[in-house]
Amino acid sequence: MQDPRMTAFDATATASPDTRFAVTHGGWRLSEEFDHRHAWLRVAHGDQQVCWQLEAHSGGWLARLREGHAAPAMTTRDAGLETALRQWLQALFARDTGYRYLRVDDALRALCPTVFGEPVVKRAEFYQQPPLWYRGDNLGRHEQVWTTSDSGVRHPRRRPLPTGTVYERYCADIDQVFSFRRASPEQDVERLTDWMNQPRVARFWEKAVPRDEIAAYLDRVLGMAHLQPVVGCFDGQPVGYFEFYWAAEDPVGAYYEADPYDRGVHMLIGDANYLGRRLGRAWTLSLSHFVFLDDPRTRRLIGEPRADNQALLKYVERTPGWTKIKEFDFPHKRAALIVCDRDDFFDRVVFP
């Protein structure tokens, strides 16, 4: 599996006095360099290199081939070049949050048409392209076959997540990779038992029970078509448990007008070392991002935490796309309905 971190290369041979970004993939070397007047993107392969001038341009960037340079047009796809360019775009949009697009010239489009299919790369649209982050098998390609749940709700037939990692994102602000992998009884029952029995978790999940009961619970969840349990990890270290679910056939679907592709999430961070705002931002942005990448037909992600979970609700208010809609009474709790809108999320989010 490709490590999504940036891999630095020796840029001392360039003419730039400073380098903002450098990455290598498949023999391609990319760097964004600058001096006191100009910034430029340098693309090198072997002993050949070409540069594009980067100019601030009315809320975005303009990339223009530097005078005296000529860029080759690629006749076949090159995965190394694609990955390097996408990582540069991720860094570009993260660093300059006021810039929402990159306009490229014909030469850069010809160099890599799979990344620059259009003359303007918009930040919100770039974040919805799956290659850098998504490792699942859906992307909206699952055939839409309608069925009816035991409770009489008509909905598309659901498929389980594939085994292993389904999402990973390098978080530059904390220099860690956050990922989701499908939960596994063999790997996760012990830690899930420990997490569920922690008082701060048990207060909200109400599953402070012995290992055998947690094992039975996880088996049951894995066997339910509308539930998708995953473990969240920082640099491969499991830190939390998340249950994504299809809202239409979940009990919460009776409390609001659920769309067939609305998703919901229950979550807990079991490792207390990974609590806090900076790390919390990494996993909250990632869970929304994963859901919206997994199926483009999903327009909303919802949650229904306890209405007295003020710490979570205050955090939600500061998270792109999320808002509290109302409170309502579940049979077992007073709940708050919180919703993340797809368009609002991608319009506002900037991945650090």
Rank of each mutant, 00 (worst) to 15 (best):
D3I: 09
D3N: 14
A8F: 13
F9V: 08
F9K: 08
D10H: 11
A13S: 13
P17Q: 12
P17H: 09
F21Y: 14
A22N: 10
H25W: 10
G26I: 05
L30D: 01
E33W: 01
D35A: 11
G46Y: 04
V50C: 15
C51Y: 01
Q53K: 15
L54T: 10
L62G: 09
L65S: 09
A70R: 14
A71P: 08
T75K: 15
R77C: 13
D78R: 07
A84G: 14
Q87F: 10
L89V: 04
D96K: 07
R100L: 14
R103C: 08
R109Q: 15
A110F: 06
C112H: 03
F116Y: 11
V120N: 07
V120M: 10
E125P: 08
F126T: 13
Q128M: 12
P130D: 08
L132W: 01
Y134R: 12
T147V: 14
S149L: 08
D150S: 13
S151Y: 12
P160C: 07
G164Y: 09
V166C: 02
E168V: 07
C171D: 08
I174P: 05
Q176G: 04
R181E: 00
A183G: 03
S184Y: 05
Q187E: 09
E190V: 08
L192K: 00
L192P: 00
P199V: 00
R200W: 01
A202F: 00
R203N: 09
W205A: 05
V209I: 13
P210Y: 04
E213Y: 06
A216C: 05
L218S: 03
V221E: 11
G223A: 13
V231L: 04
G232V: 00
F234Q: 01
F234H: 04
Y241L: 05
E243F: 06
Y245S: 01
Y245T: 00
A248K: 02
P251R: 10
Y255G: 06
R263Q: 00
M267H: 03
D271L: 02
N273F: 02
R277Q: 08
L279P: 05
L285Q: 05
V291I: 12
F292G: 00
A307Q: 13
A311N: 15
L312W: 12
K314L: 14
K314Y: 13
P320A: 09
K324E: 13
K326R: 15
K326G: 11
E327P: 13
F328Y: 14
L337E: 01
I338P: 05
D341M: 00
D341W: 03
D347F: 01
V350G: 02
